[in-house]
Design a protein around this nucleic acid. Structure first.
Length: 565
RNA sequence: CGGGGUGUAGCUCAGCCCGGCUAGAGCGCUUGGUUUGGGACCAAGAAGUCGUAGGUUCAAAUCCUAUCACCCCGACCA
């Protein structure tokens, strides 16, 4: 493809709308333009990369027996009401105004509808159905370029099985396919246990790409390989000690002391004898939550214990329920409260907590003697350097981008939509489902996040839009142009995709800068000083290494370069 | 939805606080010429409802009110 005749609008300056590297470079390299918040127009070069990513995904999905569909994005609202997900998605789903339709944010409903109509027998199972298609989500705050958009391309697949063992098998097939896909796309990634959220189901894992620009946070153990989203990560953080002697309760005057940090300074005691109190409302009833010291409550964990509808108490309610303000709340003397505590506090004694009276705390609380604890749970957010739950080595906490998410759904959707089959005994059963997603744009963005330098993008060999970027240096020298044209033709004749910078009105420096920005793995530089000896210069974009190669050997060189992983 | 920021030429931005005369710069673009191995140079030129609406004023890019859009932090996130 000739640069002189094709639309690749590169930018010298960084557009003000972008703040993370991938976003800046996708705009600067002319891959896309932003139409509205979270909505992007992909330009020819960007679409080329996207098609390469989609092809890569297709190959691996087909290899595990996946069959490609093309389902509608426009869905009747009624279908989504049957699974209760109109309410579950709430404002995140786009609704049409002049017809009772929604724009689908995912496709469990439509897949189940197809299955309900056409799967009759266990003999029809298993199935793996997938598509690569546009999804719509009314994100409250789109951000980070294509990493969180309101419209994006997703590869979503769905497994249909007649048994739970079958689901495990389909799930594992996907996990393996996903690893191949991300490896072939050149991404460094890791797999974490994750929360299933509103998707429901029994288990889920996320494929994460470590990146400063990521929105998710994960705990990683570099020693044993344990990795988990912070939503669910646990650790072996030390528990409170149970002293042999439980001292009598003691009132402590603590004027104007509100936070744990202030209490630490005021009392000059260790953090691990302090019990912080938080209050949630579960179905209208107050729940006191005890955490050790300054441990942070994990919202995902508390919701999985108290239910999705549990919420933090309002300050006014708090005063009414306890007679004190936040900072002076504690487990002693409360009426009508359920009390739960973090596992670090299990059966601890000689603790200090609030007295439910402003400016006072109580010392020497024994959770076995003085408090009726309704349960100990893991409630905290894991922090850096804490001992790994498996091997006790310290965790690293990293930001990460979610590339893919796989779920064991079970029968939630098949039940709601009557997707049934007859088993070997003639009994009617619900199809057992799994669902599996990959964000296509995220693969592109992650690739750039992990592979760029101050000059521009460095494409991975598998998804690069062109294998070779050919630069004609001396467009004013007739003989150089002639040789360069021959090289271009020869590359094309040998099925090597090449972007040819044949522009005559642009200086060599400008072309080199553009070549580095656009990021093809290999640059073939055709200039006067080398062609007189029958050579061209070949530059490795990643290493910057330059080699002089005879024009006769150029094809071999390129072939060899691309045959190395 | 809460907090912060920004909207001026295709792009990056100055001017706004403290109102004033024809609204600026760099890059890009057009024409002509000179250049050609790391974002060339000279000359001439085109290009802006100053986000939108209303208000104050003799006078508004500048002050006031409303509103829209975009970005960042938070909340949210199958």
């Amino acid at each position: 493809m000739r640069l002189s005749k094709n639309f690749i609008p590169t930018l010298k300056e960084v557009p003000s709308e972008a703040s993370i590297p991938s976003h800046k470079l996708m705009l600067r390299a002319g891959l896309m333009r932003q139409l509205a918040a979270g909505v992007f127009a992909f330009l020819p070069l960007g679409y080329k990369v996207m098609k390469n990513v989609m092809d890569l995904i297709r190959k691996e999905m087909d290899a595990i027996g996946g069959q490609e569909f093309h389902l509608p994005a426009l869905n009747p609202t009624e279908l989504w009401e049957k699974t209760g997900r109109v309410e579950a998605f709430g404002d995140t789903m786009f609704h049409l105004k002049n017809r009772p339709f929604v724009l689908a944010p995912t496709h469990e409903e439509v897949i189940s509808w197809v299955a309900a109509n056409h799967i009759e027998s266990y003999k029809d199972l298993p199935q793996i159905w997938y598509q690569i298609q546009t999804k719509f989500r009314n994100e409250p705050r789109p951000r980070s370029g294509v990493l969180r958009g309101r419209q994006f391309i997703m590869k979503d697949s769905y497994s249909l099985d007649s048994s739970w063992e079958g689901l495990d098998k389909s799930y594992d097939l996907h996990a393996e396919a996903y690893k191949k896909i991300f490896n072939r796309a050149g991404l460094k990634f890791f797999v974490v246990g994750a929360s299933s959220g509103a998707m429901g189901g029994s288990g889920s894992q996320e494929f994460m790409c470590e990146s400063e620009s990521g929105e998710d946070t994960c705990a990683i153990c570099d020693n044993c390989g344990y990795a988990a989203n912070l939503e669910i990560a646990t650790s072996n953080a030390a528990k409170a000690v149970r002293h042999t002697e439980s001292l009598p309760l003691q009132e402590i005057h603590t004027p104007n002391v509100k936070t744990i940090d202030e209490l630490l300074t005021f009392l000059k005691v260790s953090e691990n004898i302090l019990a912080k109190s938080l209050v949630y409302i579960q179905d209208g009833n107050p729940v006191l939550i005890l955490m050790m010291g300054n441990d942070q409550l994990n919202e995902t964990k508390i919701q999985s214990i108290l239910g999705q509808n549990a919420r933090p108490v309002h300050p006014d309610e708090l005063a009414e329920l306890t007679g004190a303000d936040a900072g002076s709340i504690g487990p002693i003397g409360l009426k009508g409260f359920k009390i739960i505590a973090d596992k670090r506090l299990e059966n601890a004694n000689n603790l200090i907590s609030g007295m439910n009276k402003n400016d006072y705390h109580i010392g020497n609380i024994d959770l076995m003697r003085d408090v009726k604890v309704d349960g100990y749970y893991d409630l905290r957010i894991v922090t850096a350097h804490e001992p790994c739950v498996n091997c006790n080595k310290p965790y690293r906490i990293v930001n990460a981008i979610e590339l893919g998410h796989i779920f064991k759904l079970g029968t939630k959707y098949s039940n709601a939509l009557n997707a049934l089959f007859l088993d070997e005994k003639g009994e009617q059963k619900s199809i057992i489902m799994g669902s599996y997603g990959i964000g296509v744009e995220r693969i592109i963005a992650c690739n750039i996040e992990q592979n760029h330098d101050k000059f521009g993008i460095i494409w991975n060999k598998t998804i690069t839009p062109f294998r070779v970027h050919q630069v004609l240096v001396n467009s004013n020298v007739e003989n150089v142009v002639k040789v360069s044209e021959n090289i271009y033709k020869n590359l094309l004749d040998n099925q090597i995709s090449v972007l040819y910078d044949d522009r005559s009105n642009v200086s060599p420096g400008f072309k080199f800068k553009d070549a580095d920005l656009l990021g093809m793995p290999l640059q073939v530089i055709v200039g006067e000083k080398n062609i007189v000896k029958g050579n061209v210069e070949v530059k490795n974009r990643r290493t910057g290494e330059r080699q002089i190669v005879g024009t006769d050997h150029l094809l071999d060189f390129i072939e060899q370069f691309y045959s190395q992983n």
